[in-house]
């Protein structure tokens, strides 16, 4: 297993490093990757180095973190809700986090840690709400998705109401509601990265338990797993991760849906093996999409959330169709 794990991890880490450097090098002004490396590892001074350190690097870190957090959250949600289409944006977690983050931006604008903490609380509220609706109504795959649609609509309506009453309180509100990386706050970024990092550690530590949950609640319980406790912890961790991601870049969608699926196609369903790979894959995807968002219509930039939605929405439709045809249950 260790041998089998080295190749994909080596490939993913190499790809991540390359995409990370490219993400810093490419933009309205292209900078040589060598200058990027010089800037990262030496104290060299100059205009390009300033651009790299103060604009491009925080942006690349943001894309890296958002991708890692959302894809990890997606894998966790899909596993504990036993629902392969339960991405954080699909089931309303992003919308909950977004609304609570907006509350922090409007009412606590100078408290830097308020945005990620409130986004976490919003993500948690939405997650628990969807889970509870799903549980009470039988928790079928469709019910969870429909609950997510309702919860998303509710939180988005709250967000729109807030923005209607306080139209000037949030700078870059369009970018926030679509998901963009052009107006990163470094203070919020630091707090969010710390919060999200805690979530990633928690997710990695929980991966054995999540693996057992793949067998269904009854078998997991029979194997000695406290199913309700593990599910609750996993939902809290997923909420931390989504909250941290939304606080950094706004409502970026579909990363948590796409990455776990690609990873499962490539490497199977073992959560212990998948978790680190999904995290790296998520970072690579958002970094790539962020590069695209800057170079596609250069010198104009489109929010990265739009690129991800263009990728994610057809992918979601494809999943719905293939799930209907597919078979995940022994007795279906």
């Amino acid at each position: 297993m260790v041998k089998n794990n080295i190749k994909p991890m080596f490939f993913l880490i190499s790809a991540l490093i390359i995409v990370f450097i490219l993400s810093i090098a490419m933009g309205a002004v292209n900078i040589s990757p060598l200058v990027v490396l010089e800037s990262l590892f030496t104290g060299a001074e100059g205009t390009q180095h300033n651009i790299i350190r103060h604009i491009r690097l925080p942006r690349a870190i943001s894309a890296f973190a958002i991708g890692a957090f959302l894809s990890c959250a997606g894998l966790m949600l899909q596993t504990v809700l036993n629902n392969a289409i339960a991405g954080p944006s699909v089931i309303g977690v992003n919308a909950g986090a977004g609304f609570f983050a907006l509350i922090a931006m409007v009412f606590l604008p100078s408290t830097f840690y308020a945005v990620p903490v409130m986004a976490f609380l919003g993500a948690l509220s939405a997650t628990l709400l969807v889970y509870e609706i799903g549980r009470r109504t039988g928790a079928s795959r469709l019910t969870i998705v429909l609950s997510g649609v309702a919860v998303s609509a509710l939180f988005n309506a709250f967000s729109d109401t807030l923005l209607t009453f306080y139209p000037n309180a949030v700078s870059g509100k369009v970018s926030f509601s679509i998901g963009g990386l052009s107006a990163i706050s470094t203070n919020t970024l630091s707090w969010s990265v710390i919060l999200g990092f805690v979530g990633i550690i928690g997710a990695l530590l929980l991966s054995s338990e999540l693996n057992v949950m793949l067998l269904g609640d009854d078998v997991a319980h029979s194997l000695g797993l406290s199913v309700k406790k593990v599910r609750f912890i996993a939902l809290v961790i997923a909420a931390i991760l989504v909250g941290a991601a939304i606080a950094i870049g706004g409502q970026i969608s579909f990363v948590g849906l796409i990455c776990p699926h690609i990873a499962r196609r490539l490497w199977g369903g073992d959560v212990k093996i998948l978790m680190p790979r999904v995290i790296l894959l998520g970072s690579i995807l958002v970094l790539l999409c962020d590069i695209l968002s800057r170079v596609l219509f250069a010198p104009f930039e489109i929010p990265v959330g739009i690129i991800l939605s263009f990728l994610g929405a057809p992918f979601f439709i494809y999943l719905l169709i293939s799930r209907k045809r597919g078979k995940t249950h022994d007795n279906n």
């Binding site: 693996n211 067998l215 073992d270 078979k327 995940t328 022994d330 007795n331």
Partner: peptide
């Protein structure tokens, strides 16, 4: 306990 209905994870 082996229930009648089981998941088939891709492992």
């Amino acid at each position: 306990f082996l229930p009648q209905s089981r998941e088939v994870p891709s492992v």
